[in-house]
């Protein structure tokens, strides 16, 4: 199997992370913000896999399994919050929830 150069992997992971981060900062829809967080988590997972394969360590893959579990938990909490948010405001626009300004 032709090995993919590691900087491709890191580059893709960085690209995905940036997409997620920019999406998180620009999107106003709470659902899309959650999706962006998922993308960022997965980009981190990809970086772990890539690093694991470079050093021939299984730790990278183990770490990715942890990230999956964390992501699943996070999605469960996040979606619950999202539902509650929608019930409260009848919208998913995150800028509506700004009462706690100083």
């Amino acid at each position: 199997m032709a090995s993919i150069p590691v900087h491709y992997v890191i580059g893709l992971a960085g690209l995905l992370f940036s997409i997620g981060l920019i999406g998180l900062m620009t999107r106003r829809n709470l659902l899309f913000m959650l999706i962006c967080i998922e993308i960022m988590l997965n980009s981190a997972g990809l970086a772990f896999i890539g690093a694991g394969s470079v050093w021939n360590q299984s730790d990278g893959q183990v770490m990715f399994l942890f990230i999956l579990a964390v992501a699943a938990a996070e999605v469960a909490v996040g979606l619950a919050l999202l539902l509650l948010y929608f019930r409260q405001y009848r919208t998913l626009d995150i800028d509506r929830a700004s009462q706690m300004r100083g």
């Binding site: 981060l21 998180l24 300004r101 100083g102």
Partner: peptide
Amino acid sequence: MTSVLQTGQLRWYTAFVT
């Protein structure tokens, strides 16, 4: 000054954290 930063806008917080 500091309380001006507390906008209540989640996306601003994200930007600052970043």
